[in-house]
Design a protein around this nucleic acid. Sequence first.
DNA 1: TCAATATCTCAATGAATGTTGAAACAGTGG
DNA 2: CCACTGTTTCAACATTCATTGAGATATTGA
Lengths: 124, 124
Amino acid sequence: MKLEEPQALNAFGALSQETRLRMVRVLVQAGPEGMAAGAVGEAVDASSSSASFHLSHLERAGLIQSRRESRSIIYSANFEGLAGLVEFLMRDCCSGHPEVCLPAASVAAECCTPANAKETACAC
Amino acid sequence: MKLEEPQALNAFGALSQETRLRMVRVLVQAGPEGMAAGAVGEAVDASSSSASFHLSHLERAGLIQSRRESRSIIYSANFEGLAGLVEFLMRDCCSGHPEVCLPAASVAAECCTPANAKETACAC
DNA sequence: TCAATATCTCAATGAATGTTGAAACAGTGG
DNA sequence: CCACTGTTTCAACATTCATTGAGATATTGA
C-alpha cells in the first residue's frame, strides 16, 4: 500500500504515543488472528475507554483493522499499512539514500530466515 | 544506531508534524552538506522562530544534526538516526514479519541501483 | 425478554504542542 | 567598536491530545 504524506503523518502520529506503540507491538505479535479489544487494553494496561480511543486512532491511521466476532471486536495488525509506512520512510522521506536503505536491507535479510519466513515465498 | 522505545517514540512524534516532516525531506535531499536554518525555514515556509523550534525538536529526536559555520547554523540529516528508525519499525515494532520485511527488502534493492549507490559499497 | 458481557461514545478536565512577535545572543565586516 | 545578519529564546495564547467516568449500544445465553 502506497502512503501519501497525510497518511504518513497520521501513521507517525499514531505511533508516537506509548500506549498505541505498545498496542501495535502486541497486535503484530498476535498475528493475523488478532486479539479482542479488551485483551489488547489489558495487555497494555489501559482502561476500556482509553483502549477504545487508542484502537480507533490506530485503525483510522491504517495500522490496524477490526472485525466483529460475536460480542468481541477483534483487532489485528494491518501489515500492508505497516509495510507502507516503512516504504514511505525509506523511499519518500529518505529518498532512497543508501545510508538508510542498506541497514534496512540487512534487517530484511535477517527476517527472511527460515524461522520467520514460513509459508511466504522469500526473495532474499 | 539502535533505537530504544523512548527514542523511537520521540522520532515518531517528530515526524508526525507536517513542517517537521517536510524539513526532514528537505535535509535528506540536501545531503551531508546540509542547509542553513534560514534556508530550511524558507523551504518549508516557516517563520524563523517556528523553524528554530522545529529544527531543535528534530535534533533532540536524533533525526538531524547541526554545526555552526560562521554566522549560520547548518543542519543536516542524521542518516544513522533515520536508519535506526527504519530498523526499529521493522525489527522491534513489526517483529520481523515477512509481510513487512519483504516489501522493505525490495525498496532497499531499488535504492541500491548504481544511480543511488555511488561510493557506498552495495550489498544487494 | 432479561441480565450479563464487551465495547463504544460523550463531555469534562488537564496536559502537551504549535504559533507569534519581541527581544536576546553570536559572529562578521567595515 | 558598531551596525548588520542569522539564529535562538521567551512568554502568551490558541489548539490539539489523553484520560476519566458515566452512560449508550450491540450481542449472547438463559
